[in-house]
């Protein structure tokens, strides 16, 4: 199912399965990345920058008609 196309630190798990049939949803397999320092990690609630996804509660790009 998962064959190594890109090293993910787990040795053989790539982000996506080799065969990815259409019409399916996929969550990419997490890859190792340089983590936050422990004080930042505690503050941000995660050690992985790519999981640091705060809800800002406003539109990212303003769609208001000016």
């Amino acid at each position: 199912m998962y064959t190594s196309t890109k090293p993910s630190g787990n040795g053989e798990m790539s982000a996506f399965p080799a065969e990815t049939p259409i019409g399916m949803c996929y969550v990419p397999f997490q890859q190792w990345e340089t983590p936050y320092a422990e004080n930042i990690a505690l503050e941000r609630g995660t050690m992985f920058p790519s999981l640091d996804l705060p809800f800002c509660g406003k539109e990212v790009n303003c769609n208001e008609r000016k």
Binding site: S8, G9, N10, G11, M13, F29, Q30, W32, P35, E38, N39, A41, L42, T46, M47, F48
Partner: peptide, 20 residues
């Protein structure tokens, strides 16, 4: 507290990446 949290995060990652 920082070290506890960090270890917990690493634990979660290692659950799915035991050989990383």
């Amino acid at each position: 507290q920082m070290y506890d949290f960090y270890l917990y995060e690493l634990n979660l990652y290692l659950d799915t990446h035991p050989t990383d």
